[in-house]
Simulated scan of single mutants.
Amino acid sequence: MSAAAAAGTWRLGDLEVNRIGYGAMRLTGNGMMGNSGGGPVDRAAAVRLLHSAFGQGVDHVDTAAFYFSPLRSANEIINRALSTWTEHVVVVTKVGPGRTPCGEWQTMARPDQLRGQVEENLRQLGRDCLDVVNLRRNGPGTDSIAEHFGALAELREAGLVRHLGLSNVRPEHVAEARTIAPVVCVQNAYGLDWRDADGSGLVDLCREQGIAFVPFFAVSGLQREAAAAREQDARVLTVARAHGATAAQVRLAWTLHRGPHVLAIPGTTNPAHLAENVAAGALRLSEDELGLLDRPTDAAATG
């Protein structure tokens, strides 16, 4: 059994994947909203990193056409890595927001512009059909996503997309989308320090409906796109010491314990951190440890 298989599997439609995946944003050297994630990653090193992930059982990758910096494109690196990898890897991308060639962010695309975004992902990834496309809702509010999701459903019917998902949404958006086409995954910010999806009932809703819940920022938490800061939470450090694990592994394990439908897509450009992230799938936390981690942060001393 591969290291990534230790956490079990889940199905994205008809695509079965190990619950530990990989988030490709950091391959570009920049965070999604422009926060620095370090310098540009050498292409050959990035390909080796992805091959290492695949070799450890990571069989799904999260990406987007707007994950690029002046020197690197996540999709281009993934394309290059997969061109010399013989086993199938599920690629999950997203559309909705856009960036100009010089990197400036644009407002949410119109429904009629989504086909162009899907075709750009197809071109960059070198594919004829995208495994999963998430509609990423851009901005606050409870606005309808029916027109946008309907446009993607048409592309699914046309054979350009295999499965559809959602990102940055609330329960009412999931309900609205499911009246149009099946939803195989929901990708929202979620982690030990960021539990809005618990308060809204989104995590439980996804479980009840057989939808994968895929948190981003599970390790970096309130740091968002920036690399995770030095761990300051005494609860996390206590559990990490008990298992001889890293704080990041404990945060990932806590997230995966939230339900068998919860996946993880931690991103890193460090091979050692990659191995640690994958190994977190085998970390089993006791009920007492989960209870400790679930206590409010202000109830624990920081260290």
Rank of each mutant, 00 (worst) to 15 (best):
P70K: 09
T107Y: 10
H88D: 12
G103P: 10
D112V: 01
V90E: 06
R110C: 10
W105T: 11
I77K: 01
L114Q: 07
A64Q: 08
V92H: 06
G98P: 12
A65Q: 12
P70N: 12
G96W: 05
N75C: 13
P111H: 00
A109D: 05
P101G: 04
T63W: 00
Q106Y: 04
C102W: 13
E104S: 05
C102G: 14
A65I: 08
E87M: 10
S69P: 09
T63K: 02
M108P: 05
R110H: 14
F66L: 15
F66W: 14
G103S: 03
N75P: 09
F68H: 07
A74Y: 02
Y67R: 08
E76W: 10
P97M: 02
D112A: 02
C102E: 13
G96R: 05
V95F: 03
W105C: 14
A81E: 06
V61I: 12
V90R: 05
V91T: 11
G96Q: 07
Q113V: 00
E87W: 13
G98N: 02
Q113Y: 05
E76R: 15
L114F: 07
A65W: 10
L82V: 12
F68I: 14
T63E: 06
D62I: 00
R72V: 04
I77M: 07
I77Y: 01
R115N: 00
I77Q: 01
Q106F: 09
F66C: 06
D62F: 00
V91N: 02
E104C: 10
E87K: 13
S83L: 06
Y67A: 09
T86S: 14
Q113N: 06
T84G: 15
E76A: 14
A109N: 06
I78L: 15
T107A: 15
D62V: 00
T63L: 07
R115G: 03
P101L: 01
V89M: 09
T93E: 13
R110F: 09
S83C: 07
T93Y: 07
A74N: 07
L82I: 11
V95P: 01
V92P: 11
L114V: 08
V89E: 10
A109V: 03
